[in-house]
Computed example of a mutant assay.
Amino acid sequence: MSLVLPSELVVDRFLPTVRAMLAARLAERGLTQQEIATQLGVTQAAVSKYVSGNGGGGDDRFRDDPETVATVERIADGLATDEMDGYDALAELLSLVRSLENRGPICELHEEVMPELRGLGCDLCVRGLDPDVRAERDVLANVRTAARTFASISGIADYVPNVGTNVGMCLPNPRDETDVAAVPGRIYAMGGRIEIPANPEFGASKHVSTAILAATAVDPEIRGALNIATDEDILAAAKAASGIESLEFDADYEERGTHLENRFREHGSVPQIAYHCGAFGIEPATYVFGTTAVDATELVADLLSTSSGN
């Protein structure tokens, strides 16, 4: 693992860029190179390189970032007219850094040098390591493991619907689908292989999140689910080998979430399996539920193994 602090990127990539931008803007406003050097806390030789464009370093992501450009212009105007002093300029830059660390260019650079951060929706720089951040990371990690487990199940490609499948898990006490993590773009079977297009993200799926939100509204312990094609052998294996009673629901309905939640309440609990047999223009689908996404995926693996006699 490459352990890089965001502050290193600020020093190595952000600060040289902003200094060069400020030097150029201050020169345009008539300040001498020595005056600019004094303002920026660098040597006159460094300013000469900045102004000539030979300063090196920096990053075009900052040069092209509208917020960075606007801040540099504001600081240059303030320093050139003595309406700002060093304290004011520092306050502006610190505010800019905080903003760019919040899913901005600094965050983008951080994910490049630390690939382990990709797909985690990392907000460490902004929020710190608080319980909410930890919960989000745990959910994303669980869904990522579930997706990989799903892809490794022998013969699973035959049970992926034509519209694709997805696996998801919600945070405790979810408000809406933005609190449910799933795989963006769904999981597809191509040539007998499972294709997972991206790492899980929150708010990435409407369908599986609707099922999860309906389930957790009835039983808060149920936070994970995935969907597969409806198959009679799997439903029979669930009942015969595991004693799992599958709940059928209507495929042709307008408010899926409300319909599912009502069916679960009528049933008295959230079943491990809920399915429908399709309708006009609607492919038959089965939802498998678990306390986590991994639990739901492992149940699918067990059912397929049982139904195939492996």
Rank of each mutant, 00 (worst) to 15 (best):
L120T: 03
A157K: 06
A141F: 15
E136I: 00
S95T: 05
L124M: 09
I106K: 03
P131C: 06
C170N: 14
L124W: 04
A70D: 10
L129I: 11
R175Q: 02
D123W: 04
L171M: 11
C122F: 10
D88A: 03
E111R: 11
M114T: 12
I153E: 05
A91F: 14
E112T: 11
R74N: 08
L100G: 05
E136Q: 10
L96P: 07
Y159L: 14
P161H: 04
V72D: 07
S152W: 13
L140V: 00
G185D: 03
L96S: 07
C122M: 05
D82G: 09
P105Y: 14
D158A: 14
N102M: 06
N173T: 09
G155F: 09
P131N: 05
V139D: 11
I156R: 05
G121S: 05
C170K: 15
E111G: 12
H110V: 06
D130N: 12
R98M: 15
D179I: 06
E116S: 01
G128Q: 09
L90T: 07
E177F: 13
P172Q: 01
I75A: 01
P105N: 12
V133I: 13
D88Y: 04
L94D: 03
V143F: 03
P184E: 03
V167Q: 01
V160Q: 08
C107E: 08
V183Q: 13
Y87V: 07
A80V: 15
L96K: 05
N166E: 07
G119Y: 01
V97Q: 15
I75V: 06
L109H: 11
T165K: 14
P115W: 08
A76E: 10
S154Q: 11
R134M: 00
L94T: 02
G168T: 02
E108M: 11
E112K: 15
R175D: 00
R74L: 07
N102Q: 08
R98S: 08
T71M: 08
D85S: 10
R103S: 10
P174D: 01
L120F: 05
M84H: 12
E83S: 13
L90W: 04
P105T: 14
S154N: 09
